[in-house]
Design a protein around this nucleic acid. Structure first.
Lengths: 109, 109
DNA sequence: TTCCCATAACGCAATATTACGATATAAGGA
DNA sequence: TCCTTATATCGTAATATTGCGTTATGGGAA
């Protein structure tokens, strides 16, 4: 159906799924990397950097904002985007926790 | 279009996007958590544990296998699934690298 | 005011995803 | 052999995502 039965899963699982969406498209990875690299927040240099149209990029930015991992500040005619520290750290924790839960096994597979 | 222009992005970005897909649906998070918790590989206890139908679960398992993060070993009439260590560690590295690239800023936003 | 710039919103088209029931398939046990 | 159990596959329906052109919108500059 394309519809995810979120209500049937645990909060934490849904949260991780949501946060993972920030990284599940190469354009969004590229946007986040750009934000990480340019300590100063950016506006639409992205249009010059990414091989996508302005409207598509705006949409990805919107999605990242919905997820909460970035925020945008209107500054005159432009918008400055940057990583939302709190959410970023939260994502870091959740992913770290997940990844470190793995313990090597004797060889079941 | 629903089609992602992967060819226009860098390999690393596409790789991360692919790996993120392993975590971008609560059912897949739940499956991975189950695999982490039960050191012994499992088959379809998942059908009892998850609120989804057998066919839907099989589909998620297939997707996780495509991504490469789990592998399945046929054992008689059952299939034992488990985390693929190599891919798991690779994902861990990529995400860790991404998350630790963030440096707190003076207050641009 | 009028014109441009950066962004956002709208609407469309194409494709992908999620979910499930129903039907295979394959191996082990009765 | 026939039945059961565990998985996989198929087909279908509903919804989501991706991408873009086009059109707003809002502010600054001329």
């Amino acid at each position: 159906m394309g519809i995810t039965k979120s209500e049937l899963f645990k909060k934490r699982q849904n949260k991780m799924a949501t946060l993972a969406k920030a990284f599940d498209h190469p354009a969004r990875v590229a946007i986040l990397e750009h934000l990480l690299a340019h300590q100063t927040c950016i506006c639409n240099d992205l249009v010059d950097v990414l091989p996508l149209s302005q409207s598509t990029i705006t949409q990805h930015l919107k999605e990242l904002k919905n997820i909460g991992i970035i925020k945008g500040e209107i500054e005159g005619p432009k918008v400055n985007y940057c990583i939302d520290e709190k959410v970023w750290e939260e994502a870091k924790d959740i992913f770290l926790n997940m990844f470190t839960r793995y313990v090597k096994q004797n060889d079941c597979c």
